[in-house]
Design a protein around this nucleic acid. Structure first.
Lengths: 345, 345
DNA sequence: GATTAGCACTCTTCGCCTGTGAGTGCTAAC
DNA sequence: GTTAGCACTCACAGGCGAAGAGTGCTAATC
């Protein structure tokens, strides 16, 4: 990628900024006027022709202005964009909407966050719910409900609670049950759920068989509790916001997007990419692997509980989106989220 | 409402049936052809003019065919429509998709049902999740987690389980805690959650204060557990299906509908109406109280656990919808649902 | 050599018009 | 009571032209 001279940078910046605001192709005249840099439109025109040749801009049709290409946006995000700053009111509004929910369950915090984020950004937002798998086992309990049913409760350090009603083998006495549970708690404590693999379970099983020989059921339940919810829920907000974007005015496009939104597993895959990277990631257009969002950009940020990344929050919009602003909002939100989740328990 | 003679009934029926299929206004010629009853189009034309005057049909514009009015649909549903019957394959496909999920949690059954229903009917479907409030209290447990936190578990007869982490007053000894819980279980057993009102709680509180005087916390948690989730979740499926309906081809209409879908509380209100009536209810156009769906019809059916109505399932579509068919599908689905929910636990 | 003014050219968008086809309402005949 | 026939209405699609925005190119200017 050849480097751009200062003037080209300025012009590219101007085109991107203007197009983000207006959604229209921006002409040389507009650039010359609005960002007066002592040049005539003709000069700008020449520069813009250069930029187009280099692949940073493109023309919808011959006699229209230019719009940034995907590459143009990428350059903007990487080199041109200043770091955005949130207004005080906005920051306060975010933290207010979240902290109202202070004492609630983790799921409620998340689903609230997704709502706040979508209403602030006016985009579609998605949050990958906390990854049960990533958090560490704390304890497991079995509550007998009646003669042949019991409630398994699985608790992780970060406060997740999973429960499940299971059939209890009636040949299992309460004392035996208690013994098994105690043993399991000892063995599993401190492992992440990911680490509780089937092979580990089998190992434990062998181990226990030597002492108690009627535990098949108890293990089945453990395996089941773990297998279940392999994949976290995805929370989705502001789906209708894309309808406000002029780039989605056609019914088929809307249809394609909304169909995507109905497929939780796809959304999960999309967000999962952001799990690995700490900090904020920007995927523009075809940089996204999922081809349904090749006309969109996705900005994701990871959030944590106690320095352990457990989920991602993302904003999805047209490639023409206000990267600067949205990144700032995401920063703010994730900060708050991290604080809340860590302090809350 | 004056009664229609046989011929008018036939014609109205023909118009409704044809329009449901094609979505186009249907002309006299079409009726004469397709439903040959030995009459010419001119005669049909006269009859249709009559029907229009009586308010059963209407004309989009002067030189178009007729479409059924809301009143026309109502008459069709009440008097003309034969009872639909599902094909074997369809019935089997529904029961297959549901029974795969046999052993899962109740929420999963429901969310699966909503998916099946929307894919079979090609409409938007919504299910009011099981009403926690309507089911009867079975037992309550408190699991101490560590020094100052505990897990409250609330179990109802129909198998709902709610849990919540609470702060435990450290001045409460395990023995005392156990005593309180036992007492509460005794008192609350067999009541529906609805019946556990604040006043009842206060009464119990007074009662207990005489014996143990440090229970404030324990009660707060009980109240909280109950207050929470005042309103059941609404499960939504096939939201994109309305995009296939020609009556929703304009972006604003889509927008309005989708915005509605994002407001769970509104959906809840809409569905709640169907809770009272056993069996299947059809609301056409403005018969719906919610004005956002004045252009739609809603067919709802109640589902039960052990003969107690606990939720509603609904199909929402344009007023031009295949009432006959959808009612048949709903019948089938609700039957299955009832069976599953009752046998499952 | 870089910049600018000027101008012809291109392409979209919008409104207008017109022809076409479907379907009606009415009248008169059966 | 029913039907045939005909004039009339209206939505819809395609074609046309004017307006407007913006470009590319060339020649003049700094």
């Amino acid at each position: 990628m050849e480097t751009l001279n200062e003037r080209k940078k300025q012009i590219l910046h101007a085109v991107v900024a203007n197009h983000i605001q207006t959604a229209d192709p921006v002409g040389s005249r507009t650039v010359a006027r609005a960002y007066r840099m002592g040049l005539s439109s003709a000069t700008i025109r020449n520069e813009m022709a250069d930029l187009e040749e280099m692949g940073y801009l493109e023309q919808p049709h011959t006699s229209a202005g230019r719009i940034p290409s995907q590459r143009g946006y990428r350059y903007y995000v990487d080199h041109l964009m200043a770091r955005g700053k949130l207004g005080d009111e906005e920051e306060r509004s975010i933290s207010r909407s979240l902290s109202l929910e202070k004492m609630r369950e983790i799921e409620q915090i998340i689903s609230n966050a997704v709502r706040v984020l979508s209403s602030v950004t006016n985009q579609t937002t998605l949050i990958m719910g906390p990854q049960f798998q990533k958090s560490t086992f704390q304890q497991m309990r079995i509550l007998p409900l009646d003669e042949n049913r019991g409630l398994v409760v699985l608790i992780t350090e970060s406060g997740f609670i999973k429960n499940k009603v299971i059939e209890l083998n009636q040949s299992l006495s309460p004392a035996e049950l208690h013994q098994v549970v105690t043993y399991l708690n000892q063995k599993l404590f401190g492992l992440t759920i990911d680490q509780v693999t089937t092979s580990l379970i089998n190992e434990l099983k062998r181990d226990l068989f030597r002492r108690l020989e009627i535990l098949e059921q108890a293990f089945i339940l453990l395996e089941e509790s773990l297998r279940e919810e392999q994949q976290a829920r995805v929370f989705l907000g502001g789906t209708t916001n894309i309808l406000n974007q002029p780039e989605f005015k056609s019914v088929e496009k809307i249809h394609r997007m909304l169909s995507l939104f109905e497929q939780e597993s796809l959304l999960f895959e999309i967000l999962e990419k952001g799990l690995s990277e700490d900090g904020i990631a920007v995927k523009i257009g075809t940089e996204n692997e999922c081809k349904d969002i090749h006309e969109c950009s996705l900005i994701t940020a990871a959030y944590k509980i106690d320095d352990r990344v457990i989920g991602t929050v993302g904003v999805l919009g047209p490639t023409r989106m206000d990267y600067r602003w949205i990144i700032a909002v995401l920063h703010c939100l994730v900060d708050q989220l991290n604080r809340m989740l860590s302090s809350d328990l």
